[in-house]
Design a protein around this nucleic acid. Structure first.
Lengths: 151, 151
DNA sequence: TCTGAAACCGTTCCCTC
DNA sequence: GAGGGAACGGTTTCAGA
């Protein structure tokens, strides 16, 4: 997917505020609203833009505890199995299989410590999970809304 | 911040597609467009909604390598120092101070392995960084757009 | 809290470059 | 192939009841 300078400016404006009108974006990048819409449609069709979403503050919604969890699985658990298991928990916000000793890393948000522990227990109780290792987030330093743009 | 059932339905619709019109959201939750807007304004003012953004596919934008990096710092490095250091790198998408042996965990996206290594080197070269330990993402399993809603 | 009206926006089509 | 502009129908926004 090829992005020119104008595409990058459009994306940067929408990263900052996805509800900006095409006219406003166009005024800023030197294009008409319809030209901007055509580019955004193309970026969506090409898969660069996968959607538009709202940014929420976990703390304001009552989610006070965050943590990273390393998953150590029994021999040769396929990624699909891990995905299926963690997908059922809305508290799992992010999950990837990784290199190194652990098989996967999860990011979990929970209402409180008790809740975090319950989720951890349920995930640890999955048959394919040998053990888990978790660290708690003390303070969130940086939470970028989206992937950086090509440079 | 108190959220009733309707607020949660509104947020759920906007998490799914932040560019939905207030009229469409209203039709779905049984409210007029202006009533929906008032609620969204209130949610923004209250800090529950911190903004609207676009979801991008890193791979489609040429970011092929992702990884988690644990930062081990020299004695009593304040969070501010870590923040200031990692904030300069657009490749750092997420950063938190954490409990456990490491002092902070970063998530980094990079164009390729070479690029990842360069960022890692530059971060490791910060005077307050004693060492780093990183794992590479093999496959992203789950990437939830936003915090879950209260249950 | 709702209604209505004016301003504004998304979308499409056609024309030009 | 890409952009501008106009037209229309829907949306946002705000005042007033």
């Amino acid at each position: 997917m090829e992005l020119d300078r104008v595409d990058q400016e459009i994306i940067a404006m929408l990263v900052d505020d996805a509800r900006r009108s095409y006219a406003e974006v166009g005024a800023s990048v030197g294009l008409s609203a319809s030209a901007v819409k055509r580019r955004v449609d193309r970026l969506r069709a090409g898969g660069a833009i996968t959607g538009f979403t709202v940014r929420l503050d976990p703390a304001a919604l009552g989610w006070a505890v965050e943590g990273y969890v390393e998953l150590y699985c029994r021999n040769s658990t396929p990624p699909r199995t891990i995905h299926a298991a963690v997908d059922r928990f809305p508290e799992v916000v992010d999950a990837s299989t990784v290199s190194g000793e652990a098989d996967a890393v999860l990011r979990i948000v929970a209402a409180d410590m008790r809740h975090f522990e319950q989720v951890l227990e349920q995930i640890g109780a999955q048959p394919f999970v040998a053990r888990t290792k978790s660290v708690l987030v003390l303070s969130p330093l940086l939470r970028r809304p989206a992937t950086p743009l090509p440079h």
